[in-house]
Design a protein around this nucleic acid. Structure first.
Lengths: 158, 158
DNA sequence: ACTAACTAGGACTAAAATAGTCCCAGATTG
DNA sequence: CAATCTGGGACTATTTTAGTCCTAGTTAGT
């Protein structure tokens, strides 16, 4: 299915909520604003704070605020904060692979991984919350959007 | 983590094994060739057969073979066969979203989803099994590889 | 015809990852 | 010093994923 964890999804929603203004929001306020359980939102915000995507203010009247303007925060950062590094297969990350003698796909998985990472780095939180891309309205088709030349160039089948 | 299921990973390995020649291979032969459990490989091959990525030959001396030449099979097809449609969040697919009033990110998730889908459609099985991309050797950086203009064009931050 | 070698399909079990809740400690405000 | 908030982590429940097994049907060889 190639799905993000729910945390990454929630994290994006929380960040989107906070991107509306630069004010300090408590976890419980965000929770009611997004209609989510307070404990869950609190956990999400702690995770985001640890990765410095939001700044925290302790004490009464404390809360969280975006650490940077939304156009300087990429979706890749949010996903990384919530789910850890993107790695679509076990072998596409840094850890060693015991099957390299049997399987020659590793290097190419790593290339694909980077393409996806790159795509997510290019989308900022500010862009992510822009309306105007309702389902079916856009004409992105997967054509001419991605250049996989790092894989195909050295080949033939183009 | 944004990880494929192990089945998608196994499926790729199985397809890669079969891509070496056009011959018929039994499930148990593939299993021993790849050092995997026979029952698991059998299950994988059944899944691939149902999606017409491999053709099956029943009876004694039967087995499986690639349904098409490896350059005509995309990674997207293999992943779709094993994991179902790519959908990085719940709302990035077709199913309805109960939170659309609270969250404006859906359309953009769908765009991102298509970018990833497009990247995987562009990589063929033939390319996937080519050596030459050992870890760290390539210089794909996530820069200038992906054009996210469908999202960013209508914006400002580029 | 019969047997051995296969695939087709699905039921079932086991294991692991994920999601969600709760608790206690420390900071700040009034 | 009481109320309100974050920090950090332990814990539990739930869902997903992975893996095994069983029965039925097909074909080749003898």
């Amino acid at each position: 299915m190639l799905r993000l964890s729910k945390f990454a999804d929630y994290g994006t929603q929380v960040m989107a909520y906070m991107a509306k203004d630069g004010a300090v929001h408590s976890a419980s306020e965000v929770a009611s604003g997004l209609d989510m359980a307070a404990a869950t939102v609190s956990k999400i915000l702690k995770m985001l704070a640890r990765e410095n995507l939001v700044a925290s203010v302790m004490g009464a009247k404390g809360g969280y605020m975006l650490a940077r303007p939304p156009q300087d925060i990429s979706m890749a950062e949010i996903i990384n904060a919530m789910d850890g590094p993107i790695s679509i297969t076990e072998c596409s990350g840094d850890s060693s692979c015991t099957r390299e003698s049997l399987c020659s796909t590793r290097g190419n998985w790593q290339v694909i991984n980077r393409i996806i990472q790159g795509a997510l780095e290019k989308v900022s939180l500010a862009e992510m919350i822009k309306p105007g891309h309702q389902a079916g309205k856009h004409h992105v088709s997967g054509q001419h959007i991605v250049d996989t030349s790092a894989i195909s160039r050295r080949g033939k089948s183009a």
